[in-house]
Design a protein around this nucleic acid. Structure first.
Lengths: 200, 200
DNA sequence: CAACGACATGTACGTATCTACATGTCATCC
DNA sequence: GGATGACATGTAGATACGTACATGTCGTTG
Protein backbone atom coordinates (compact mmCIF):
# COMPACT_ATOMS: atom_id res chain seq x y z
CA UNK A 1 0.00 0.00 0.00
CA UNK A 2 2.93 2.33 0.66
CA UNK A 3 4.62 1.61 -2.65
CA UNK A 4 1.91 3.72 -4.25
CA UNK A 5 2.88 6.68 -2.09
CA UNK A 6 6.58 5.98 -2.39
CA UNK A 7 6.29 6.30 -6.16
CA UNK A 8 4.25 9.48 -5.85
CA UNK A 9 6.90 10.88 -3.51
CA UNK A 10 9.68 10.17 -5.97
CA UNK A 11 7.68 11.63 -8.84
CA UNK A 12 7.18 14.78 -6.77
CA UNK A 13 10.88 15.43 -7.41
CA UNK A 14 10.24 15.51 -11.14
CA UNK A 15 9.20 13.32 -14.08
CA UNK A 16 10.63 9.81 -14.21
CA UNK A 17 10.07 6.51 -16.00
CA UNK A 18 9.39 3.11 -14.46
CA UNK A 19 12.98 2.25 -15.20
CA UNK A 20 14.25 5.36 -13.39
CA UNK A 21 12.06 4.62 -10.39
CA UNK A 22 13.19 1.00 -10.29
CA UNK A 23 16.79 2.21 -10.14
CA UNK A 24 15.94 4.73 -7.42
CA UNK A 25 14.58 1.89 -5.35
CA UNK A 26 17.64 -0.24 -6.04
CA UNK A 27 19.91 2.61 -5.02
CA UNK A 28 18.67 2.82 -1.48
CA UNK A 29 14.94 2.93 -1.00
CA UNK A 30 15.02 -0.84 -1.31
CA UNK A 31 16.53 -1.06 2.15
CA UNK A 32 13.40 0.36 3.73
CA UNK A 33 10.86 -0.69 1.14
CA UNK A 34 11.72 -3.43 -1.38
CA UNK A 35 10.13 -3.22 -4.82
CA UNK A 36 10.75 -5.02 -8.10
CA UNK A 37 10.08 -3.62 -11.51
CA UNK A 38 6.88 -5.56 -12.30
CA UNK A 39 5.25 -4.09 -9.23
CA UNK A 40 6.44 -0.62 -10.05
CA UNK A 41 5.16 -0.73 -13.62
CA UNK A 42 1.78 -2.09 -12.61
CA UNK A 43 1.48 0.48 -9.83
CA UNK A 44 2.30 3.25 -12.30
CA UNK A 45 -0.52 2.08 -14.57
CA UNK A 46 -2.95 2.19 -11.67
CA UNK A 47 -1.75 5.64 -10.59
CA UNK A 48 -2.16 6.94 -14.13
CA UNK A 49 -5.65 5.45 -14.37
CA UNK A 50 -6.50 7.13 -11.07
CA UNK A 51 -5.29 10.47 -12.37
CA UNK A 52 -2.58 10.87 -9.73
CA UNK A 53 0.15 10.85 -12.38
CA UNK A 54 0.11 11.36 -16.13
CA UNK A 55 2.38 10.65 -19.08
CA UNK A 56 5.01 13.36 -19.34
CA UNK A 57 6.88 12.23 -22.43
CA UNK A 58 7.70 9.28 -24.66
CA UNK A 59 11.40 8.71 -25.11
CA UNK A 60 13.67 6.36 -27.04
CA UNK A 61 13.37 2.61 -26.45
CA UNK A 62 9.69 2.81 -25.59
CA UNK A 63 10.53 4.91 -22.58
CA UNK A 64 7.51 6.47 -20.87
CA UNK A 65 8.15 9.20 -18.32
CA UNK A 66 5.39 10.10 -15.90
CA UNK A 67 4.74 13.35 -14.11
CA UNK A 68 2.81 13.84 -10.90
CA UNK A 69 -0.51 15.70 -11.16
CA UNK A 70 -1.88 18.23 -8.69
CA UNK A 71 -4.15 15.52 -7.28
CA UNK A 72 -1.16 13.21 -6.94
CA UNK A 73 0.83 15.82 -5.06
CA UNK A 74 -2.16 16.50 -2.82
CA UNK A 75 -2.54 12.77 -2.20
CA UNK A 76 1.08 12.19 -1.20
CA UNK A 77 0.93 15.19 1.11
CA UNK A 78 -2.30 13.97 2.63
CA UNK A 79 -0.65 10.61 3.22
CA UNK A 80 2.38 12.21 4.88
CA UNK A 81 0.40 14.58 7.09
CA UNK A 82 -2.79 12.68 7.90
CA UNK A 83 -2.51 8.93 7.39
CA UNK A 84 -1.39 7.12 10.50
CA UNK A 85 2.05 5.55 10.40
CA UNK A 86 2.12 1.76 10.37
CA UNK A 87 4.71 0.83 12.99
CA UNK A 88 4.69 -2.88 12.30
CA UNK A 89 7.63 -4.27 10.43
CA UNK A 90 9.00 -7.67 9.55
CA UNK A 91 12.66 -8.38 10.09
CA UNK A 92 14.02 -11.83 9.44
CA UNK A 93 17.04 -11.25 11.72
CA UNK A 94 14.85 -10.47 14.72
CA UNK A 95 12.38 -13.28 14.10
CA UNK A 96 15.28 -15.72 14.02
CA UNK A 97 16.63 -14.37 17.28
CA UNK A 98 13.62 -15.79 19.11
CA UNK A 99 14.78 -19.23 18.09
CA UNK A 100 18.47 -18.94 18.91
CA UNK A 101 17.96 -21.47 21.69
CA UNK A 102 17.48 -24.11 18.98
CA UNK A 103 20.92 -23.48 17.48
CA UNK A 104 24.23 -25.12 18.18
CA UNK A 105 26.53 -22.65 19.97
CA UNK A 106 29.07 -22.70 17.10
CA UNK A 107 26.40 -22.06 14.48
CA UNK A 108 25.00 -19.25 16.57
CA UNK A 109 28.37 -17.58 17.04
CA UNK A 110 29.08 -17.81 13.34
CA UNK A 111 25.67 -16.37 12.53
CA UNK A 112 26.01 -13.50 14.99
CA UNK A 113 29.45 -12.76 13.55
CA UNK A 114 27.99 -12.62 10.05
CA UNK A 115 25.21 -10.35 11.24
CA UNK A 116 27.68 -8.04 12.97
CA UNK A 117 29.78 -7.82 9.81
CA UNK A 118 26.74 -7.17 7.65
CA UNK A 119 25.24 -4.40 9.79
CA UNK A 120 28.59 -2.70 10.33
CA UNK A 121 29.39 -2.76 6.65
CA UNK A 122 26.00 -1.47 5.68
CA UNK A 123 25.95 1.24 8.34
CA UNK A 124 29.40 2.29 7.16
CA UNK A 125 28.27 2.56 3.55
CA UNK A 126 25.27 4.63 4.59
CA UNK A 127 27.43 6.86 6.76
CA UNK A 128 29.73 7.49 3.82
CA UNK A 129 26.77 8.37 1.63
CA UNK A 130 25.50 10.69 4.35
CA UNK A 131 28.96 12.27 4.57
CA UNK A 132 28.91 13.14 0.88
CA UNK A 133 25.54 14.81 1.39
CA UNK A 134 26.90 16.67 4.41
CA UNK A 135 29.82 17.91 2.33
CA UNK A 136 27.30 19.40 -0.06
CA UNK A 137 28.15 17.11 -2.95
CA UNK A 138 24.46 16.68 -3.69
CA UNK A 139 23.54 20.32 -3.37
CA UNK A 140 21.94 21.94 -0.38
CA UNK A 141 18.29 21.90 -1.36
CA UNK A 142 15.58 21.29 1.22
CA UNK A 143 15.01 17.97 -0.52
CA UNK A 144 18.59 16.82 -0.13
CA UNK A 145 18.71 17.81 3.50
CA UNK A 146 15.42 16.13 4.28
CA UNK A 147 16.61 12.95 2.59
CA UNK A 148 19.70 13.17 4.75
CA UNK A 149 17.35 12.80 7.73
CA UNK A 150 15.99 9.59 6.23
CA UNK A 151 19.48 8.23 5.74
CA UNK A 152 20.27 9.04 9.36
CA UNK A 153 17.40 6.81 10.47
CA UNK A 154 18.71 3.92 8.39
CA UNK A 155 22.23 4.46 9.78
CA UNK A 156 20.97 4.41 13.35
CA UNK A 157 18.89 1.27 12.87
CA UNK A 158 21.81 -0.58 11.29
CA UNK A 159 24.24 0.61 13.96
CA UNK A 160 21.80 -0.46 16.67
CA UNK A 161 21.66 -3.93 15.17
CA UNK A 162 25.45 -4.08 14.87
CA UNK A 163 25.69 -3.10 18.53
CA UNK A 164 23.17 -5.78 19.43
CA UNK A 165 25.09 -8.49 17.59
CA UNK A 166 28.34 -7.40 19.27
CA UNK A 167 26.64 -7.43 22.67
CA UNK A 168 25.19 -10.88 22.10
CA UNK A 169 28.57 -12.22 20.98
CA UNK A 170 30.53 -10.65 23.84
CA UNK A 171 28.05 -11.61 26.52
CA UNK A 172 28.41 -15.11 25.11
CA UNK A 173 24.91 -15.66 26.40
CA UNK A 174 24.29 -18.89 24.65
CA UNK A 175 27.32 -20.88 25.62
CA UNK A 176 26.88 -23.86 27.93
CA UNK A 177 29.33 -22.65 30.55
CA UNK A 178 27.57 -19.55 31.73
CA UNK A 179 24.16 -20.08 30.28
CA UNK A 180 21.59 -22.42 31.71
CA UNK A 181 22.43 -25.78 33.19
CA UNK A 182 21.76 -29.45 32.62
CA UNK A 183 18.39 -29.31 34.36
CA UNK A 184 17.30 -26.41 32.16
CA UNK A 185 18.36 -28.22 29.05
CA UNK A 186 16.52 -31.37 30.02
CA UNK A 187 13.42 -29.35 30.80
CA UNK A 188 13.38 -27.81 27.36
CA UNK A 189 11.17 -29.37 24.75
CA UNK A 190 13.87 -30.10 22.20
CA UNK A 191 13.79 -33.73 21.31
CA UNK A 192 11.22 -34.53 23.95
CA UNK A 193 8.10 -34.19 21.86
CA UNK A 194 4.96 -35.46 23.42
CA UNK A 195 5.97 -34.87 27.00
CA UNK A 196 6.71 -31.18 26.75
CA UNK A 197 4.26 -28.75 28.35
CA UNK A 198 2.14 -26.60 26.07
CA UNK A 199 3.51 -23.67 27.46
CA UNK A 200 4.83 -20.19 27.30
CA UNK B 1 7.97 -17.48 3.84
CA UNK B 2 9.36 -17.01 7.34
CA UNK B 3 6.00 -17.43 9.02
CA UNK B 4 6.33 -21.10 8.29
CA UNK B 5 9.59 -21.26 10.22
CA UNK B 6 8.33 -18.97 12.94
CA UNK B 7 5.52 -21.39 13.65
CA UNK B 8 7.91 -24.34 13.62
CA UNK B 9 10.15 -22.50 16.05
CA UNK B 10 7.31 -21.87 18.46
CA UNK B 11 6.14 -25.48 18.17
CA UNK B 12 9.67 -26.60 19.03
CA UNK B 13 8.91 -25.34 22.54
CA UNK B 14 6.04 -27.78 22.83
CA UNK B 15 2.59 -28.59 21.40
CA UNK B 16 0.28 -25.67 20.74
CA UNK B 17 -2.93 -24.87 18.89
CA UNK B 18 -3.50 -22.26 16.21
CA UNK B 19 -5.16 -20.15 18.86
CA UNK B 20 -2.14 -20.42 21.17
CA UNK B 21 0.22 -19.50 18.35
CA UNK B 22 -1.92 -16.54 17.34
CA UNK B 23 -1.69 -15.24 20.90
CA UNK B 24 2.05 -15.78 20.99
CA UNK B 25 2.34 -13.61 17.91
CA UNK B 26 0.08 -10.97 19.43
CA UNK B 27 2.15 -10.95 22.60
CA UNK B 28 5.36 -9.80 20.98
CA UNK B 29 6.41 -11.68 17.88
CA UNK B 30 4.00 -9.43 16.01
CA UNK B 31 6.43 -6.56 16.42
CA UNK B 32 9.04 -8.31 14.28
CA UNK B 33 6.75 -10.47 12.17
CA UNK B 34 3.04 -9.64 11.93
CA UNK B 35 0.65 -12.55 11.44
CA UNK B 36 -3.12 -12.87 11.68
CA UNK B 37 -4.99 -16.00 12.57
CA UNK B 38 -6.24 -16.96 9.08
CA UNK B 39 -2.66 -17.11 7.87
CA UNK B 40 -1.53 -19.09 10.88
CA UNK B 41 -4.27 -21.68 10.51
CA UNK B 42 -3.68 -22.12 6.81
CA UNK B 43 0.05 -22.40 7.33
CA UNK B 44 -0.50 -25.04 10.02
CA UNK B 45 -2.54 -27.10 7.54
CA UNK B 46 0.26 -26.91 5.01
CA UNK B 47 2.89 -27.82 7.60
CA UNK B 48 0.82 -30.82 8.69
CA UNK B 49 0.36 -31.94 5.09
CA UNK B 50 4.13 -31.63 4.60
CA UNK B 51 4.76 -33.80 7.66
CA UNK B 52 6.69 -31.11 9.53
CA UNK B 53 4.07 -31.05 12.30
CA UNK B 54 1.33 -33.46 13.33
CA UNK B 55 -1.83 -33.39 15.41
CA UNK B 56 -0.95 -33.80 19.06
CA UNK B 57 -4.39 -33.77 20.64
CA UNK B 58 -7.98 -32.68 20.20
CA UNK B 59 -9.26 -30.55 23.06
CA UNK B 60 -12.51 -28.89 24.10
CA UNK B 61 -14.11 -26.37 21.75
CA UNK B 62 -12.73 -28.01 18.63
CA UNK B 63 -9.22 -27.23 19.79
CA UNK B 64 -6.48 -28.92 17.79
CA UNK B 65 -2.98 -28.90 19.23
CA UNK B 66 -0.06 -29.63 16.94
CA UNK B 67 3.33 -31.07 17.76
CA UNK B 68 6.53 -30.67 15.78
CA UNK B 69 7.92 -33.79 14.11
CA UNK B 70 11.56 -34.78 13.84
CA UNK B 71 11.55 -33.55 10.24
CA UNK B 72 10.02 -30.28 11.40
CA UNK B 73 12.69 -29.79 14.03
CA UNK B 74 15.38 -30.61 11.49
CA UNK B 75 13.86 -28.12 9.07
CA UNK B 76 13.73 -25.23 11.52
CA UNK B 77 17.32 -25.93 12.54
CA UNK B 78 18.40 -26.09 8.92
CA UNK B 79 16.71 -22.74 8.37
CA UNK B 80 18.45 -21.19 11.37
CA UNK B 81 21.90 -22.55 10.59
CA UNK B 82 22.03 -22.66 6.79
CA UNK B 83 19.46 -20.44 5.09
CA UNK B 84 20.79 -16.98 4.38
CA UNK B 85 19.24 -14.15 6.38
CA UNK B 86 17.07 -11.77 4.40
CA UNK B 87 18.24 -8.31 5.47
CA UNK B 88 15.59 -6.40 3.59
CA UNK B 89 12.79 -4.95 5.61
CA UNK B 90 9.92 -2.57 5.04
CA UNK B 91 9.38 0.23 7.50
CA UNK B 92 6.71 2.80 6.83
CA UNK B 93 8.39 5.36 9.13
CA UNK B 94 11.64 5.26 7.17
CA UNK B 95 9.99 5.30 3.77
CA UNK B 96 8.08 8.43 4.77
CA UNK B 97 11.27 10.10 5.97
CA UNK B 98 12.50 10.26 2.37
CA UNK B 99 9.58 12.54 1.62
CA UNK B 100 9.77 14.86 4.60
CA UNK B 101 10.73 17.66 2.23
CA UNK B 102 7.14 17.60 0.95
CA UNK B 103 5.67 18.32 4.38
CA UNK B 104 4.77 21.60 6.03
CA UNK B 105 7.19 22.31 8.90
CA UNK B 106 4.39 22.22 11.50
CA UNK B 107 3.05 18.90 10.22
CA UNK B 108 6.55 17.48 10.22
CA UNK B 109 7.25 18.58 13.78
CA UNK B 110 3.99 17.10 14.95
CA UNK B 111 4.71 13.87 13.15
CA UNK B 112 8.25 13.61 14.53
CA UNK B 113 6.87 14.27 18.00
CA UNK B 114 4.36 11.46 17.60
CA UNK B 115 7.07 9.13 16.36
CA UNK B 116 9.32 10.02 19.28
CA UNK B 117 6.50 9.32 21.74
CA UNK B 118 5.63 6.03 20.07
CA UNK B 119 9.16 4.64 19.94
CA UNK B 120 9.98 5.74 23.48
CA UNK B 121 6.80 4.21 24.83
CA UNK B 122 7.31 0.99 22.98
CA UNK B 123 10.99 0.71 23.88
CA UNK B 124 10.00 1.32 27.51
CA UNK B 125 7.41 -1.45 27.45
CA UNK B 126 9.94 -3.84 25.94
CA UNK B 127 12.56 -2.86 28.49
CA UNK B 128 10.12 -3.58 31.27
CA UNK B 129 9.35 -6.97 29.79
CA UNK B 130 13.07 -7.65 29.49
CA UNK B 131 13.51 -6.61 33.12
CA UNK B 132 11.01 -9.20 34.28
CA UNK B 133 12.96 -11.85 32.36
CA UNK B 134 16.21 -10.59 33.89
CA UNK B 135 14.67 -10.91 37.35
CA UNK B 136 14.02 -14.54 36.60
CA UNK B 137 10.26 -14.25 36.58
CA UNK B 138 10.08 -16.43 33.53
CA UNK B 139 12.56 -19.03 34.68
CA UNK B 140 16.18 -19.28 33.65
CA UNK B 141 16.05 -21.83 30.89
CA UNK B 142 18.27 -21.56 27.84
CA UNK B 143 15.13 -20.79 25.91
CA UNK B 144 14.13 -17.86 28.10
CA UNK B 145 17.60 -16.37 27.98
CA UNK B 146 17.85 -16.74 24.24
CA UNK B 147 14.50 -15.04 23.81
CA UNK B 148 15.81 -12.26 26.01
CA UNK B 149 18.43 -11.67 23.30
CA UNK B 150 15.65 -11.24 20.77
CA UNK B 151 13.90 -8.71 22.96
CA UNK B 152 17.15 -6.80 23.33
CA UNK B 153 17.31 -6.37 19.56
CA UNK B 154 13.79 -4.98 19.45
CA UNK B 155 14.60 -2.60 22.32
CA UNK B 156 17.70 -1.31 20.57
CA UNK B 157 15.92 -0.75 17.26
CA UNK B 158 13.10 1.17 18.95
CA UNK B 159 15.51 3.22 21.02
CA UNK B 160 17.55 4.01 17.93
CA UNK B 161 14.43 5.30 16.21
CA UNK B 162 13.44 7.33 19.27
CA UNK B 163 16.93 8.85 19.28
CA UNK B 164 16.62 9.62 15.59
CA UNK B 165 13.28 11.39 16.03
CA UNK B 166 14.68 13.41 18.92
CA UNK B 167 17.75 14.34 16.88
CA UNK B 168 15.63 15.40 13.91
CA UNK B 169 13.38 17.51 16.13
CA UNK B 170 16.22 19.15 18.03
CA UNK B 171 18.32 19.84 14.98
CA UNK B 172 15.18 21.46 13.60
CA UNK B 173 16.57 20.58 10.21
CA UNK B 174 13.45 21.29 8.27
CA UNK B 175 12.61 24.75 9.47
CA UNK B 176 12.90 27.66 7.05
CA UNK B 177 15.30 29.68 9.19
CA UNK B 178 18.27 27.36 9.19
CA UNK B 179 17.33 25.02 6.43
CA UNK B 180 17.65 25.82 2.78
CA UNK B 181 16.93 29.22 1.32
CA UNK B 182 14.62 30.85 -1.18
CA UNK B 183 16.78 29.79 -4.11
CA UNK B 184 16.76 26.21 -2.94
CA UNK B 185 13.03 26.24 -2.52
CA UNK B 186 12.47 27.68 -5.95
CA UNK B 187 14.77 25.10 -7.44
CA UNK B 188 12.81 22.23 -5.94
CA UNK B 189 10.20 20.53 -8.06
CA UNK B 190 7.25 21.15 -5.78
CA UNK B 191 4.55 22.94 -7.68
CA UNK B 192 6.71 23.34 -10.75
CA UNK B 193 5.74 20.19 -12.61
CA UNK B 194 6.87 19.99 -16.16
CA UNK B 195 9.97 22.09 -15.82
CA UNK B 196 11.66 20.08 -13.10
CA UNK B 197 14.68 17.96 -14.02
CA UNK B 198 14.41 14.19 -13.88
CA UNK B 199 16.44 14.32 -10.76
CA UNK B 200 19.13 12.40 -8.94
C1' DC C 1 -31.82 -20.97 31.61
C1' DA C 2 -30.57 -16.99 28.87
C1' DA C 3 -27.01 -13.95 27.82
C1' DC C 4 -22.43 -12.94 27.46
C1' DG C 5 -17.71 -13.29 26.63
C1' DA C 6 -13.64 -15.84 25.89
C1' DC C 7 -12.13 -19.73 23.44
C1' DA C 8 -11.38 -21.79 18.88
C1' DT C 9 -11.38 -22.59 13.86
C1' DG C 10 -12.28 -21.65 9.60
C1' DT C 11 -13.87 -19.49 4.55
C1' DA C 12 -13.99 -15.90 1.02
C1' DC C 13 -12.05 -12.50 -1.46
C1' DG C 14 -9.19 -8.94 -2.83
C1' DT C 15 -4.61 -7.04 -2.99
C1' DA C 16 0.45 -7.24 -2.71
C1' DT C 17 4.45 -9.19 -3.99
C1' DC C 18 7.87 -12.26 -6.03
C1' DT C 19 10.01 -15.12 -9.66
C1' DA C 20 10.45 -16.34 -14.18
C1' DC C 21 9.75 -15.47 -18.73
C1' DA C 22 9.22 -12.62 -22.97
C1' DT C 23 10.05 -8.80 -25.92
C1' DG C 24 11.55 -4.74 -28.03
C1' DT C 25 15.17 -0.72 -28.73
C1' DC C 26 19.37 1.49 -29.26
C1' DA C 27 24.48 2.30 -29.16
C1' DT C 28 28.94 0.41 -29.39
C1' DC C 29 32.48 -2.48 -30.69
C1' DC C 30 34.64 -5.83 -33.42
C1' DG D 1 26.79 -5.77 -40.35
C1' DG D 2 26.37 -8.98 -36.44
C1' DA D 3 26.99 -9.59 -31.54
C1' DT D 4 26.64 -7.74 -27.18
C1' DG D 5 24.95 -5.30 -23.44
C1' DA D 6 22.42 -1.70 -21.32
C1' DC D 7 18.06 0.38 -21.62
C1' DA D 8 13.07 -0.28 -21.17
C1' DT D 9 8.52 -2.40 -20.51
C1' DG D 10 5.67 -5.75 -19.86
C1' DT D 11 2.85 -10.72 -18.89
C1' DA D 12 1.93 -15.04 -16.30
C1' DG D 13 1.42 -17.56 -12.47
C1' DA D 14 2.11 -18.67 -7.74
C1' DT D 15 2.25 -17.36 -3.02
C1' DA D 16 1.60 -14.32 0.89
C1' DC D 17 -1.11 -11.42 3.38
C1' DG D 18 -4.97 -8.75 5.29
C1' DT D 19 -9.90 -7.77 6.21
C1' DA D 20 -14.37 -9.17 6.76
C1' DC D 21 -17.44 -12.61 7.60
C1' DA D 22 -19.24 -17.04 9.58
C1' DT D 23 -19.63 -20.59 12.97
C1' DG D 24 -19.28 -23.47 16.79
C1' DT D 25 -18.05 -24.42 22.06
C1' DC D 26 -17.82 -23.80 26.79
C1' DG D 27 -17.99 -21.55 31.44
C1' DT D 28 -19.80 -17.93 34.20
C1' DT D 29 -22.99 -14.95 35.92
C1' DG D 30 -27.48 -12.81 36.62
Amino acid sequence: MSLRHGLLGLLAEGPASGYDLTRRFEEGLNTVWPAQHPQIYSELSKLAKAGLIEVDSHGPRRRIAYRITDEGLAEVRRWLAEVEVDHSFRMDTLLRSYFFWLMEPEDLKRRLGEELAYFERFAGALREHAGSKDRGEWGTSARTRAQRVGIEAAIRVNEALAGWARWALEADLMSDENFGNAADRDASAVGTQGEAPAGQ
